[in-house]
Design a binder for these strands. Structure first.
Lengths: 193, 193
DNA sequence: ATCGAAATATACTGATTGGTATAATATGAG
DNA sequence: CTCATATTATACCAATCAGTATATTTCGAT
């Protein structure tokens, strides 16, 4: 090792993640990336391989962050019902705040790349399955604490909540009126008994 | 008018719709389009304007077809519950049949273009709202016929069903295991009482 | 102080992008 | 038959694409 890298690799990857997240794979050019990452073209290729490798690294970073964020939010709540309500409401609040709604990087990739590239089909599928596992664990805790009914179909409910989360996230990107989103969320959360 | 067009405009638009639906806006080139539409480049521009205009025409054609397809399916059923069950199950069956899952052209566009182009934000939002109206009408018929409880919150339920439909459609693109999808659908449909 | 390896900056590659200019062809109106 | 017009086919445009060759700079090991 002789000359040290002048930029922060993780910071650069963060910047790439944000841009791919907002614009998708095809609509993001290498020039866009080097501009926002603040590095030169050959540095990008030397550090991250090529455009697809960089995208994959960015997506993996996102799914890890996203999973641990959701896990944390669900853990730090006294009531399971309240935890899920907060999860959905914060998502809604967040998306209405931003002018350009980026949605979920993983969902965006399911739509754009999963059907055409098995690598991303697997990566995104495993993330969604992992979310349902987190949801299951949370629901189980609620049953143990006596908050939720013991005959609840935990697996089905967790999976339905993932479906709802995805549906809501997509709808938020077209700025659907707030009451539409709120009403449907309330009804779906009523499945948690 | 002197020389008649040698190709069928609606047929060509159909072909463009299929390709945009499968690959999205950015990943579809004019060369891809002229190849599948079987026409020359200047014919495409003379007939449809430019790439974005062609995409918009294709999407409008899709949303019209999609809405009337769903309306028909819901009308031609004796039971409202069965009608919604069939709607979801046929969607699932269809997506598992195809090797490349195209999903829903409107949802794909919400993800790719709605956040960056108000024209598509509005177009896609209105389609999803229209679907919820079709769902509401169907649920109301079920109440009138006595099949459904009269105190049902029709609007909220219709909107929740749209959310679920979107979530399921997205998940099908990453080829999630069948039981995941089936279980969550069954639970969500249990909201129709 | 010198050498070599890695990171940098500039400039370049061939291929592809969306969009057109041009010229040949077809066809109905007069 | 002739002319005007719209459609066709070919060939082209500048701009941008992903990726790289080259040359310079940096800096620790010797």
């Amino acid at each position: 090792m002789v000359r040290q890298r002048e930029f922060d690799k993780e910071k650069a990857l963060d910047d790439a993640m944000e841009l791919f997240w907002e614009k998708g794979y095809a609509a993001t050019s290498i020039s866009d990336l080097t501009a926002i990452m603040g590095i030169q073209r050959p540095s990008l290729y030397a550090t991250f391989g090529d455009k697809e490798k960089l995208f994959e690294a960015a997506l993996r970073k996102y799914t890890n962050l996203h999973a641990s964020l959701i896990r944390t939010k669900l853990q730090h709540a006294t009531s399971v019902k309240e935890a899920f309500r907060n999860l959905f409401e914060e998502l809604i609040e967040e998306e209405y705040k931003n002018k350009v709604s980026k949605g979920c990087f993983c969902i965006n990739t399911i739509i754009e790349l999963a059907p055409h590239d098995e690598k991303f089909e697997i990566l995104t599928r495993e993330h969604e399955m992992y979310l349902s596992v987190i949801f299951q664990e949370t629901l189980l805790k609620g049953i143990k604490s006596g908050e939720l009914e013991s005959n609840l179909d935990v697996k089905a409910l967790a999976q339905a909540l993932v479906v709802a989360l995805i549906g809501i996230t997509v709808l938020l990107k077209s700025h659907l009126e707030r009451s539409f989103v709120d009403k449907s969320v309330t009804l779906i959360l009523s499945l948690i008994k």
